[in-house]
Amino acid sequence: MERDRLTPRDHARVASFIHDSVGIQLPEQKRNLVESRLRKRQNALSIPSLGDYIDYALSTKEEHIHLIDNLTTNKTEFFREASHYPVLETHVTNWRRSQSEKQHFHIWSAGCSSGEEPYTLAMVLKPLLGQHFSITATDISLEMLEIASKGLYLRNQIQPIPEGVRKRFLLKHRDKTKPIIKISQDIRQHIRFGQFNLLNDNYAAMPKFNVIFCRNVMIYFSDDIRQRIIRQFLNKLTDDGLLFIGHSESIRGIEGIEQLVPTVYRKISS
């Protein structure tokens, strides 16, 4: 039955909506992936066919966020791309030497997914800055933000966290039989989670940041959209602020920025 398969026409309709809404590209070779993800939502709503679900999703504003949630990738882990953190520590140490002790350090974790990145950043910054830092953690997915804000993870998810850091910042469940770990309030107090669409939300409402992390997000964007977002990031960085991107990503043809090491860029002072 054709209505229960993702036809080329329906794939094109969905891909166009996702590109216009959040900038992500879903080319033809991802049609099987798109179909499998949409079918989960179709089944959850007990809609007879996939074609019927797509008609419903594209015409119903309340369903748009679920369509986006199901088609965005949320792969992450604690201390992912570990080579970035010594660079961050050096930058923070140098920054603090040039500032008063009460100066606040601001980081944006853009595309924070289920929270592992901003919590990792807080664990790195806490010994260096004490109370004098804050992290704005944003994502397009309300589902991921809900998970992130709870700060609850399974024991196998925390394996990348060094043992000493675990002892300081993680809390075990009172019931020893449950493999659940909670991020301590000492870390959570520094992070504010919120929804933000990198393609078309209001960057002007964001404060200035000393550092922006946006890793393995822009790989899904076209070159034009990627360059537009990077320019927005530069506008939100302080002079000499750092932009961290993913190891599968690169920046070309953008003025006002220089590469420090692979995937780490510094805004040139104006």
Score class of each variant (00 low, 15 high):
M1G: 15
E2W: 10
E2M: 15
L6Y: 06
R9W: 13
D10Y: 14
A12W: 02
R13D: 05
R13A: 12
D20L: 03
D20Q: 15
V22T: 04
I24H: 07
I24A: 04
L26T: 12
E28V: 15
Q29S: 14
K30V: 01
V34D: 05
E35L: 04
E35Y: 04
S36N: 14
L38S: 03
R39Q: 11
K40E: 10
R41I: 12
N43S: 11
L45P: 00
S46V: 10
P48Q: 02
L50W: 06
Y56Q: 05
Y56I: 02
L58T: 06
T60M: 03
K61Y: 10
H66K: 11
L67F: 02
D69F: 01
N74G: 02
N74S: 11
T76Y: 05
E77P: 01
F78G: 00
F79L: 05
R80M: 05
E81T: 02
P86K: 01
P86F: 01
E89H: 03
T90R: 11
T93Q: 12
N94W: 00
N94Y: 06
R97L: 14
S100F: 10
E101D: 13
E101F: 11
E101T: 14
E101M: 07
K102T: 13
F105S: 10
I107L: 14
I107T: 08
A110T: 08
S114P: 08
G115D: 03
G115T: 06
E117Q: 07
T120D: 11
A122S: 14
A122L: 06
M123A: 09
L125Q: 00
L125H: 04
K126W: 07
K126T: 14
K126A: 14
P127W: 02
L129R: 01
L129I: 10
F133S: 06
F133W: 02
T136N: 07
A137I: 13
T138G: 00
S141M: 02
E143S: 12
M144P: 08
Y153R: 10
Q157E: 15
P162E: 00
P162W: 00
R166G: 06
R168C: 02
R168F: 00
L170I: 01
K172H: 14
H173P: 01
H173E: 15
R174H: 14
D175G: 05
K176E: 15
P179G: 07
I181H: 04
K182P: 06
I183Y: 00
Q185V: 06
F193Q: 12
N197E: 05
L199V: 04
L199A: 06
N200L: 00
N200T: 09
F213T: 01
F213G: 00
M218P: 11
I219H: 03
F221L: 09
S222T: 15
D223T: 12
D224S: 15
D224T: 15
R228H: 14
R231S: 08
N235R: 13
L242K: 07
L243K: 07
F244V: 09
F244Y: 11
H247K: 12
H247L: 06
S248A: 15
E249V: 08
S250G: 13
S250R: 09
I251R: 01
R252D: 09
R252E: 13
R252W: 07
R252G: 10
G253W: 08
I254G: 03
G256M: 03
I257R: 09
I257V: 12
E258Y: 00
L260Q: 09
V261G: 00
Y265L: 01
R266P: 09
I268Y: 04
I268L: 12
S269P: 02
S270T: 14
